[in-house]
């Protein structure tokens, strides 16, 4: 059988030396009102210029999960995002919530990326800036693209194990292990796993309700210029692996969703008559038994 392209994992050795955990939280700038957007007529991509960006709401749950681990076991939480230059503002709000550092990965060559190219850029930034990380914690999905691709893709680029829908975690600093509880909504079960760190997780969107953003911390971040920018001058990623050129998927066409034609019969009036009218019609349709 053909060789796999999966690299083997090097277990974490650095935890337990008094520094606590290094947790990376990649976050996305989501477009707030997903029904009022403009699409580029040529690439069909979302036009992000001039659109106010906000932190993807589920990434706040992910950040909360990371901050709770930091509160319990010590260490640092670092957020990073591949976003246009205007992304600085929402990264400041991650510091406001309690992150120690934030990085904006921004460069023209990164524009037009699909999830393969975005995950490559994010994974390589993590490998370059924080090779000693213990956990990468991500949101379950984003509200403006809802793919839930990125966490698995980052794990694949880094050749690491991963787990989705995590709700809780417990770290053993001495052993370098983490116990993760996750919720599989469609099966109605909680599963508990134990991993040798490093590991990549995505956090179940209805767990870990996020703490408030401290305005004074956010202002500190702004005044102290705490959000650092990283461009491809530092990362030196091959331009064919990032942005539009590093993206195998294309949006070939867009169209308005065509609704299924409906009868649109409406009854106004006495509730008893309404009920009779409905039951008669549903019986005629054959969807309830007479």
């Amino acid at each position: 059988m053909g060789a796999t392209v999966i690299s083997q994992v090097t277990p974490t050795q650095s935890v337990g030396k008094g520094e606590g955990l290094t947790i990376i939280v990649p976050v996305k700038a989501a477009v707030p009102n997903i029904t009022a957007v403009r699409l580029d007529p040529v690439t069909h991509n979302l036009v992000r210029e001039g659109v106010p960006l906000m932190l993807n709401p589920y990434d706040r749950n992910a950040l909360e999960f990371a901050l709770r681990l930091k509160d319990r076991y010590g260490g640092r939480v670092i957020t990073l995002s591949m976003a246009p230059p205007s992304g600085k503002d929402f990264l400041e709000s991650t510091i406001g919530m309690g992150a120690d550092e934030a990085y904006l990965i921004t460069d023209r060559v990164f524009a037009g990326a699909d999830t393969l190219a975005t995950s490559y850029t994010v994974a390589m930034t993590i490998r370059k800036l924080f090779p000693e990380f213990n956990l990468v914690v991500m949101g379950e999905e984003t509200t403006d693209s809802t793919t839930a691709h990125m966490p698995a893709q980052v794990a694949s680029w880094l050749g690491l194990p991963y787990l989705y829908y995590v709700v809780d975690g417990e770290v053993n600093l001495k052993e370098g292990t983490v116990r993760l509880t996750r919720y599989l909504e469609d099966e109605g079960v909680f599963e508990e796993y134990e991993f040798q760190m490093p590991v990549i997780v995505s956090v179940y969107k209805d767990s870990n309700p996020p703490r408030e953003i401290s305005l004074s911390r956010k202002i500190q971040a702004r005044l102290g210029n705490l959000v650092k920018s990283v461009t491809n001058n530092e990362l030196k990623l091959d331009q064919y692996c990032v942005g539009l050129r590093g993206s195998p998927t294309i949006v070939a066409k867009i169209e308005d969703a065509k609704p299924i034609p409906r009868k649109k019969q409406v009854f106004k009036g006495d509730p008893k008559e309404a009920a009779k009218w409905l039951i008669d019609n549903l019986t005629k349709e054959g969807v309830i038994k007479s």
Partner: peptide, 18 residues
């Protein structure tokens, strides 16, 4: 839920789109 977890790792490891 498991399919959403699995598929992107397969796609990415094959370096293809999903």
């Amino acid at each position: 839920k498991r399919g959403r977890e699995l598929a992107p790792y397969v796609a990415n490891t094959l370096r293809t789109g999903i």
